[in-house]
């Protein structure tokens, strides 16, 4: 896309268009996982990273791609993934979005199942404080050839303040008749009973909030090995400090 997006473009409806204009045009990065191979990657997009990243990922037949994303700490941070899964490919995404102050943090994914027997699983957890906005727009497109596709996406967002916003937009486009596509989205606040339980045991509210939030976000780090998980959790803890 070379023309500047507008609010009418579905994938950009929650974007900070002023920020987008400053960074336009955005180069498309490519990642190819050749047939039969496995690739694991972490994208930690924080203060120093480009505001907008657009990554096209091709996963060859029976190849596997595991991606962990932490998107936080920027006035505007957008990561868009365009993933193509060939026959028997497997795509695993765990993503954490942290929006503080007046930040707009987005994750936009399109996962195309173009061959049969491919699997994709996306777990996205978001937290928004202040007047921040976190958004997840997730499209799964199954072509006619994508029989026996097994695709799932789970999005949960936590709002720490009244002024904070979360947007969820799951979208399924299915042209094959024998597929499994699951999606779920939930937006809520911290459990007041759990907060009281912590308080009644002597834990100050800010510390309890941080622990509960970290536990909530760590769903997205499931499946990582211990070292990668520890590193990601440490980074998440640091980035959460901005939530106040």
């Amino acid at each position: 896309m070379s023309t500047l997006p507008t609010r009418k473009d579905e994938a950009w409806r929650y974007a900070d268009l002023k920020a987008v204009a400053q960074h336009w045009p955005v180069p498309v990065e490519t990642l190819v996982v050749p047939a039969g191979e496995a690739h694991a990657d972490q994208i930690i997009a924080d203060a120093g990273a480009p505001a907008i990243r657009h990554i096209a990922i091709t996963i060859g037949a029976h190849a596997r791609c595991t991606l962990t994303i932490i998107n936080a700490g920027r006035d505007y941070g957008r990561i868009a993934l365009d993933v193509t899964c060939h026959e028997g490919a497997d795509f695993q995404l765990g993503a954490i979005l942290i929006g503080a102050a007046a930040e707009t943090i987005e994750l936009v994914t399109t996962v195309r199942h173009v061959g049969p027997n491919a699997t994709s699983r996306q777990i996205v957890r978001a937290v928004a404080g202040g007047t921040a906005t976190t958004s997840y727009l997730g499209q799964v497109a199954v072509a006619r050839e994508g029989q026996k596709t097994d695709a799932s996406q789970s999005f949960k967002a936590l709002l720490l303040n009244r002024g904070a916003t979360a947007n969820a937009k799951p979208e399924l486009e299915i042209f094959a008749d024998d597929v499994k596509c699951a999606h779920g989205a939930a937006i809520g606040q911290l459990d007041s009973q759990a907060m009281f339980y912590f308080a009644s045991r002597g834990v100050p509210a800010a510390q309890a909030r941080a622990l509960l939030t970290r536990a909530f976000l760590s769903d997205a780090l499931e499946g990582l090995d211990d070292a990668a998980r520890d590193a990601a959790e440490t980074r998440v803890s640091q980035l959460m400090a901005a939530l106040g």
């Binding site: 912590f198 002597g202 834990v203 509960l212 536990a215 760590s218 769903d219």
Partner: peptide
Amino acid sequence: IPGVSNLLFLRTALNAQ
């Protein structure tokens, strides 16, 4: 409390107190 172990909960409480 999903995601928070009893040990972490209790140790956090003891040290916070």
